[in-house]
Design a protein around this nucleic acid. Structure first.
Lengths: 228, 228
DNA sequence: CCAGCGCCTTGACTTAAGTCAAAAAAGCGT
DNA sequence: ACGCTTTTTTGACTTAAGTCAAGGCGCTGG
């Protein structure tokens, strides 16, 4: 297990804080260990703080009335989540559950707000985090409403390629079922589209490894939003 | 034209600031007057500040490769927009255009960041604004991916009913074409669904006035996401 | 090595919603 | 009130993607 102070100082949210400020942050943090599949909070739950993933993986998701699930984010080490109700409204806007055995840091609301009030750079960091989220949501909404599923998948593959720094092959770090939910579709549809992309020599799927045979073709598809 | 200081002190973003702080805010604001249909900024434009609507109406929207438009927000007096790149990334994530002749206040990036650093309550207000936006986006994504168009329309009508404080009738303050774009669909589809809702005695459309004949039916539809 | 289980794929079918085209209705300035 | 534009509606048709059901693949553990 990494030292807590190390985890905190590695998190982008606390970037550029002084040793002393980092220690203040550490003081208010509370450890929380969760097994795989543990629900951390549910939409509409009252919130008294937010979390940072120290280790493991967490999904943030919405569920429809019929029980269909749409994954909004999957967060790994260093990522904060559940901050929205700290600053507005008090209730979580979505659900959170661990995908792996995880170690979380919990930051109580009032203590954290105090800290922010005293540290302008922490406030600016948090504004940066929320702004990045808004940017990502903007892209997600664009994808959902202006692109078809093949375009969304292509966007995701291009994103993975940048994320993983490779132009030849990418590795999915989630199951295809979860990927379908992240793209706003269902496993059957995703599977059919992967098959089509194989046929068109855009990619070559080898389980969770996807060989990018035509990256510029994928970029095109991500841009235009339609297959063929 | 309302006095600028009045506009500023009425905006939620500057809620609870002292007289002196409000004056500081005023000092850095720059007036901008726009005709109807004026593009304020385009996605990917470099940003050197954000805006608040003093008077008029502004749409924030994305455009697909084929030119199809999806409206993300429509903002009226008191609403800030274009804040994301002030705190992260520097480029606007979407486009902004006036829907009416409008009066905007522009806040230059560096001066505003200075102000925030000195005023913790301003920082917290801004965190609140961004958090509310994230909450709204979460709902939008839920609507787009987990509900069908009738469900989204019902949600919007219920929202309008709360907004306007009436349970009997609501008034659209945008055209049906714009509403279609806001709901992530096209005018033809929206028109057909309005007709269906009329037939099912959920509503009665009278131009831009919509009589809510069965509000609990609409709430049901908004929840379940399917018509019939 | 095989059984059993979850994950993924495939097939046949249904359906919500988009496209294209045209008509009807509503605004708007003169 | 008139002619003009813009917005909204309607109809016929196409299509992307969802549903339901069955089968295959690849694990892990006995």
């Amino acid at each position: 297990m990494k030292k807590i102070l190390q985890i905190i100082s590695d998190a982008p949210l606390f970037n550029g804080l002084s040793e002393e400020q980092l220690n203040d942050v550490r003081q208010i943090s509370v450890d929380k260990f969760c097994d795989k599949g543990k629900t951390i909070f549910l939409e509409e739950d009252d919130c008294n703080g937010f979390y940072i993933v120290a280790d493991g993986k967490v999904k943030i998701y919405k569920v429809s009335f019929e029980g269909k699930e749409h994954i909004l984010h999957i967060y790994g080490p260093g990522n904060p989540f559940g901050e929205v109700p700290v600053f507005a409204g008090r209730k979580f806007p979505a659900n959170a559950q661990t995908l792996l055995k995880s170690h979380l840091l919990f930051f109580p609301r009032t203590a954290f707000v105090d800290l922010i009030s005293k540290n302008p750079s922490l406030a600016l960091n948090m504004l940066g985090v929320l702004s990045m989220r808004l940017r990502q949501f903007t892209v997600q909404i664009e994808n959902l409403s202006l692109k078809e599923v093949p375009g969304r998948l292509a966007s995701y593959l291009v994103y993975l390629s940048q994320e993983q720094g490779r132009t030849d092959v990418v590795t999915l770090n989630i199951s295809k079922g979860q990927l379908a939910s992240l793209l706003g579709t269902i496993p059957e549809t995703l599977s059919r589209i992967l098959t089509k992309m194989n046929q068109q020599h855009l990619i070559d799927t080898r389980g969770r490894n996807i060989i990018l045979k035509d990256l510029s073709g994928l970029e095109d598809l991500a841009e235009h939003g339609k297959l063929q």
